[in-house]
Amino acid sequence: MEMSGNGTSVSWLESEAGKQVQARLSEPRTLEAIDHLLERIDTLETAVDKLSDALRQGPGMVAMVGDMVDEGYRQADAQGVSIDERLKSALKIAEKLTAPEMVAKIDGLISMTDQLPGMMAMVGDMADETYRQADARGVSIDQRLGVALRMAEQLTAPEMAAQLENALQLSQQMPGMVAMMVDMVDEGMKRAVESGFDPQTLTRVAGAANSALTEAYAEPPARVGGIFSMLRALKDPDRQKGMGFLLNFLKHFGQKI
Protein backbone atom coordinates (compact mmCIF):
# COMPACT_ATOMS: atom_id res chain seq x y z
CA MET A 1 0.00 0.00 0.00
CA GLU A 2 1.08 3.58 -0.64
CA MET A 3 0.57 6.78 1.46
CA SER A 4 -1.42 9.71 0.07
CA GLY A 5 -0.40 13.35 0.46
CA ASN A 6 -2.60 13.78 3.57
CA GLY A 7 -1.06 10.75 5.24
CA THR A 8 -3.80 8.18 4.50
CA SER A 9 -2.97 4.77 2.93
CA VAL A 10 -3.96 4.20 -0.66
CA SER A 11 -4.32 0.73 -2.38
CA TRP A 12 -1.84 0.15 -5.28
CA LEU A 13 -4.84 -0.51 -7.51
CA GLU A 14 -6.01 3.04 -6.92
CA SER A 15 -2.60 4.45 -7.66
CA GLU A 16 -1.67 5.82 -11.03
CA ALA A 17 0.68 2.91 -11.75
CA GLY A 18 -1.96 0.40 -10.65
CA LYS A 19 -4.49 1.98 -12.91
CA GLN A 20 -2.07 1.76 -15.86
CA VAL A 21 -1.41 -1.92 -15.14
CA GLN A 22 -5.13 -2.63 -14.92
CA ALA A 23 -5.71 -0.81 -18.17
CA ARG A 24 -2.86 -2.77 -19.84
CA LEU A 25 -4.21 -6.06 -18.53
CA SER A 26 -7.69 -5.22 -19.84
CA GLU A 27 -6.41 -4.90 -23.41
CA PRO A 28 -7.39 -7.83 -25.74
CA ARG A 29 -3.83 -8.20 -26.99
CA THR A 30 -2.54 -8.62 -23.43
CA LEU A 31 -5.25 -11.15 -22.63
CA GLU A 32 -4.43 -13.15 -25.80
CA ALA A 33 -0.72 -13.12 -24.92
CA ILE A 34 -1.47 -14.36 -21.40
CA ASP A 35 -3.71 -17.13 -22.78
CA HIS A 36 -1.04 -18.20 -25.28
CA LEU A 37 1.55 -18.21 -22.51
CA LEU A 38 -0.64 -20.41 -20.35
CA GLU A 39 -1.06 -22.89 -23.26
CA ARG A 40 2.72 -23.02 -23.73
CA ILE A 41 3.12 -23.66 -20.02
CA ASP A 42 0.69 -26.59 -20.27
CA THR A 43 2.60 -27.99 -23.29
CA LEU A 44 5.91 -27.56 -21.47
CA GLU A 45 4.53 -29.35 -18.44
CA THR A 46 3.39 -32.28 -20.63
CA ALA A 47 6.82 -32.48 -22.30
CA VAL A 48 8.53 -32.45 -18.91
CA ASP A 49 6.28 -35.28 -17.74
CA LYS A 50 7.15 -37.37 -20.85
CA LEU A 51 10.84 -36.62 -20.41
CA SER A 52 10.63 -37.73 -16.82
CA ASP A 53 8.95 -40.99 -17.87
CA ALA A 54 11.64 -41.56 -20.53
CA LEU A 55 14.38 -40.91 -17.99
CA ARG A 56 12.79 -43.38 -15.60
CA GLN A 57 12.58 -46.00 -18.42
CA GLY A 58 16.06 -45.18 -19.76
CA PRO A 59 18.08 -47.72 -17.75
CA GLY A 60 15.69 -50.52 -18.67
CA MET A 61 15.79 -49.59 -22.36
CA VAL A 62 19.61 -49.42 -22.29
CA ALA A 63 19.73 -52.83 -20.64
CA MET A 64 17.30 -54.23 -23.26
CA VAL A 65 19.45 -52.86 -26.09
CA GLY A 66 22.53 -54.34 -24.43
CA ASP A 67 20.82 -57.73 -24.19
CA MET A 68 19.84 -57.56 -27.86
CA VAL A 69 23.46 -56.75 -28.82
CA ASP A 70 24.76 -59.60 -26.66
CA GLU A 71 22.26 -62.02 -28.20
CA GLY A 72 23.24 -60.97 -31.72
CA TYR A 73 26.92 -61.38 -30.81
CA ARG A 74 26.29 -64.90 -29.43
CA GLN A 75 24.29 -65.93 -32.50
CA ALA A 76 27.03 -64.67 -34.84
CA ASP A 77 29.69 -66.49 -32.82
CA ALA A 78 27.62 -69.72 -32.95
CA GLN A 79 27.52 -69.42 -36.75
CA GLY A 80 31.30 -69.08 -36.86
CA VAL A 81 31.23 -65.32 -37.52
CA SER A 82 33.76 -63.39 -35.48
CA ILE A 83 32.45 -59.86 -35.16
CA ASP A 84 35.74 -58.68 -33.62
CA GLU A 85 37.70 -59.98 -36.61
CA ARG A 86 35.21 -58.45 -39.05
CA LEU A 87 35.39 -55.11 -37.28
CA LYS A 88 39.19 -55.26 -37.43
CA SER A 89 39.00 -56.16 -41.13
CA ALA A 90 36.57 -53.30 -41.71
CA LEU A 91 38.94 -50.90 -39.96
CA LYS A 92 41.85 -52.16 -42.05
CA ILE A 93 39.80 -51.73 -45.23
CA ALA A 94 38.77 -48.24 -44.14
CA GLU A 95 42.41 -47.41 -43.38
CA LYS A 96 43.49 -48.64 -46.83
CA LEU A 97 40.65 -46.82 -48.60
CA THR A 98 41.48 -43.55 -46.87
CA ALA A 99 45.23 -43.81 -47.53
CA PRO A 100 46.47 -40.97 -49.80
CA GLU A 101 47.67 -43.29 -52.56
CA MET A 102 44.35 -45.19 -52.55
CA VAL A 103 42.41 -41.93 -52.66
CA ALA A 104 44.50 -40.91 -55.67
CA LYS A 105 43.75 -44.23 -57.39
CA ILE A 106 40.02 -43.95 -56.69
CA ASP A 107 40.06 -40.40 -57.99
CA GLY A 108 41.82 -41.61 -61.14
CA LEU A 109 39.22 -44.36 -61.53
CA ILE A 110 36.40 -41.84 -61.20
CA SER A 111 38.10 -39.66 -63.80
CA MET A 112 38.37 -42.69 -66.07
CA THR A 113 34.65 -43.45 -65.68
CA ASP A 114 33.94 -39.85 -66.65
CA GLN A 115 36.01 -40.39 -69.82
CA LEU A 116 34.46 -43.81 -70.51
CA PRO A 117 31.73 -42.58 -72.93
CA GLY A 118 34.35 -40.88 -75.11
CA MET A 119 36.59 -43.94 -75.00
CA MET A 120 33.68 -46.20 -75.99
CA ALA A 121 32.90 -43.91 -78.90
CA MET A 122 36.57 -44.00 -79.97
CA VAL A 123 36.59 -47.82 -79.80
CA GLY A 124 33.41 -47.91 -81.88
CA ASP A 125 35.01 -45.66 -84.50
CA MET A 126 38.09 -47.92 -84.59
CA ALA A 127 35.88 -50.99 -85.04
CA ASP A 128 33.99 -49.31 -87.87
CA GLU A 129 37.26 -48.32 -89.57
CA THR A 130 38.60 -51.87 -89.25
CA TYR A 131 35.35 -53.20 -90.72
CA ARG A 132 35.62 -50.85 -93.69
CA GLN A 133 39.27 -51.73 -94.33
CA ALA A 134 38.50 -55.45 -94.20
CA ASP A 135 35.59 -54.97 -96.59
CA ALA A 136 37.88 -53.03 -98.96
CA ARG A 137 40.29 -56.01 -98.99
CA GLY A 138 37.44 -58.33 -99.87
CA VAL A 139 37.19 -59.83 -96.37
CA SER A 140 33.62 -60.26 -95.22
CA ILE A 141 33.63 -60.10 -91.43
CA ASP A 142 29.95 -61.01 -91.33
CA GLN A 143 30.62 -64.15 -93.36
CA ARG A 144 33.56 -65.13 -91.17
CA LEU A 145 31.54 -64.54 -88.03
CA GLY A 146 28.80 -66.71 -89.49
CA VAL A 147 31.33 -69.47 -90.19
CA ALA A 148 32.71 -69.14 -86.66
CA LEU A 149 29.20 -69.36 -85.21
CA ARG A 150 28.44 -72.46 -87.28
CA MET A 151 31.69 -74.05 -86.14
CA ALA A 152 30.85 -73.21 -82.53
CA GLU A 153 27.39 -74.69 -83.02
CA GLN A 154 28.84 -77.90 -84.46
CA LEU A 155 31.50 -78.16 -81.74
CA THR A 156 28.90 -77.73 -79.01
CA ALA A 157 26.46 -80.25 -80.52
CA PRO A 158 25.81 -83.27 -78.24
CA GLU A 159 27.25 -85.81 -80.68
CA MET A 160 30.37 -83.70 -81.26
CA ALA A 161 30.77 -83.22 -77.53
CA ALA A 162 30.60 -87.00 -77.10
CA GLN A 163 33.24 -87.50 -79.80
CA LEU A 164 35.50 -84.89 -78.20
CA GLU A 165 35.04 -86.59 -74.86
CA ASN A 166 36.04 -89.93 -76.39
CA ALA A 167 39.06 -88.29 -78.02
CA LEU A 168 40.10 -86.79 -74.69
CA GLN A 169 39.76 -90.15 -72.99
CA LEU A 170 41.78 -91.76 -75.79
CA SER A 171 44.48 -89.11 -75.44
CA GLN A 172 44.60 -89.80 -71.71
CA GLN A 173 44.95 -93.53 -72.40
CA MET A 174 47.51 -92.99 -75.20
CA PRO A 175 50.63 -93.14 -72.98
CA GLY A 176 49.54 -96.51 -71.58
CA MET A 177 48.71 -97.83 -75.06
CA VAL A 178 52.08 -96.69 -76.41
CA ALA A 179 53.84 -98.33 -73.47
CA MET A 180 51.88 -101.53 -74.10
CA MET A 181 52.83 -101.51 -77.81
CA VAL A 182 56.49 -100.94 -76.93
CA ASP A 183 56.33 -103.86 -74.52
CA MET A 184 54.81 -106.04 -77.24
CA VAL A 185 57.53 -105.03 -79.72
CA ASP A 186 60.22 -105.69 -77.12
CA GLU A 187 58.72 -109.10 -76.35
CA GLY A 188 58.54 -109.98 -80.07
CA MET A 189 62.11 -108.84 -80.62
CA LYS A 190 63.27 -110.85 -77.63
CA ARG A 191 61.61 -113.98 -78.98
CA ALA A 192 63.11 -113.35 -82.44
CA VAL A 193 66.58 -112.99 -80.94
CA GLU A 194 66.07 -116.20 -78.98
CA SER A 195 65.10 -117.87 -82.29
CA GLY A 196 68.39 -116.79 -83.88
CA PHE A 197 67.36 -113.44 -85.37
CA ASP A 198 70.20 -110.91 -85.24
CA PRO A 199 68.89 -107.39 -85.93
CA GLN A 200 72.42 -105.95 -86.04
CA THR A 201 73.45 -108.40 -88.73
CA LEU A 202 70.28 -107.66 -90.70
CA THR A 203 70.95 -103.95 -90.45
CA ARG A 204 74.55 -104.38 -91.55
CA VAL A 205 73.61 -106.61 -94.51
CA ALA A 206 70.77 -104.29 -95.53
CA GLY A 207 73.12 -101.31 -95.39
CA ALA A 208 75.73 -103.13 -97.46
CA ALA A 209 73.09 -104.19 -100.01
CA ASN A 210 71.76 -100.65 -100.29
CA SER A 211 75.26 -99.24 -100.76
CA ALA A 212 76.12 -101.93 -103.37
CA LEU A 213 72.85 -101.33 -105.21
CA THR A 214 73.53 -97.59 -105.36
CA GLU A 215 77.08 -98.01 -106.60
CA ALA A 216 76.08 -100.69 -109.18
CA TYR A 217 73.34 -98.41 -110.48
CA ALA A 218 75.92 -95.65 -110.95
CA GLU A 219 78.29 -97.86 -113.00
CA PRO A 220 77.65 -98.83 -116.66
CA PRO A 221 76.35 -102.41 -117.15
CA ALA A 222 79.08 -105.07 -117.47
CA ARG A 223 79.33 -106.53 -120.97
CA VAL A 224 78.95 -110.28 -121.08
CA GLY A 225 79.22 -111.77 -124.59
CA GLY A 226 78.99 -115.41 -123.67
CA ILE A 227 79.84 -118.06 -121.16
CA PHE A 228 83.57 -117.46 -121.49
CA SER A 229 83.27 -113.72 -120.87
CA MET A 230 81.08 -114.53 -117.83
CA LEU A 231 83.74 -116.88 -116.52
CA ARG A 232 86.37 -114.21 -117.04
CA ALA A 233 84.18 -111.77 -115.09
CA LEU A 234 83.95 -114.24 -112.22
CA LYS A 235 87.71 -114.02 -111.82
CA ASP A 236 87.12 -110.66 -110.08
CA PRO A 237 87.72 -111.20 -106.31
CA ASP A 238 84.78 -109.00 -105.34
CA ARG A 239 82.42 -110.93 -107.60
CA GLN A 240 83.76 -114.19 -106.23
CA LYS A 241 83.16 -112.89 -102.67
CA GLY A 242 79.60 -111.91 -103.51
CA MET A 243 78.95 -115.22 -105.26
CA GLY A 244 80.29 -117.09 -102.23
CA PHE A 245 78.00 -115.11 -99.94
CA LEU A 246 75.05 -115.87 -102.18
CA LEU A 247 75.87 -119.58 -102.23
CA ASN A 248 76.21 -119.64 -98.43
CA PHE A 249 72.87 -117.87 -98.09
CA LEU A 250 71.20 -120.40 -100.41
CA LYS A 251 72.69 -123.24 -98.39
CA HIS A 252 71.47 -121.98 -95.03
CA PHE A 253 68.15 -120.89 -96.48
CA GLY A 254 67.66 -124.35 -97.85
CA GLN A 255 68.34 -125.79 -94.41
CA LYS A 256 65.63 -123.63 -92.86
CA ILE A 257 62.86 -124.45 -95.34
Rank of each mutant, 00 (worst) to 15 (best):
D53L: 00
I106C: 05
L97I: 09
M68G: 14
G242R: 09
D70Q: 11
A208I: 14
D238F: 03
E27M: 11
T201C: 05
L38H: 04
M64W: 06
Q169A: 09
Y73N: 11
M120F: 13
A121S: 15
I34P: 00
E153C: 01
E2T: 13
D125A: 12
M68D: 12
A47D: 00
G66N: 13
D70E: 15
S140M: 02
A54N: 06
M160C: 01
P220N: 01
R86W: 03
N6Q: 12
M160E: 01
T8N: 15
A233N: 06
M112K: 15
S211L: 13
Y73Q: 11
S82C: 08
G196K: 04
G80R: 03
A152S: 09
A206Y: 12
I110A: 14
G72T: 07
M119G: 05
K256W: 07
E16K: 12
A136W: 04
Q115I: 06
E219M: 15
L202P: 00
A167H: 04
T214W: 02
S140V: 03
A222E: 11
Q255S: 09
A167G: 03
F249G: 04
E215P: 03
S89A: 15
D198M: 01
A99W: 05
M102D: 12
E153F: 02
V205D: 10
G242Y: 11
S26L: 02
R86F: 08
S9K: 11
V21S: 01
R137C: 02
K96C: 10
F197Q: 08
P220H: 00
M112Q: 14
F249K: 02
A233C: 03
K190H: 12
G80P: 02
K96M: 13
F228L: 10
A167K: 03
L91E: 13
A94V: 05
A136N: 05
T214I: 07
T98W: 05
A17H: 10
T156K: 02
D70T: 11
M151S: 08
G58M: 05
E219Q: 15
S52P: 00
G207Y: 09
G66K: 10
L149A: 13
A233E: 05
A127W: 05
V182I: 13
P117C: 07
T46N: 07
G66E: 15
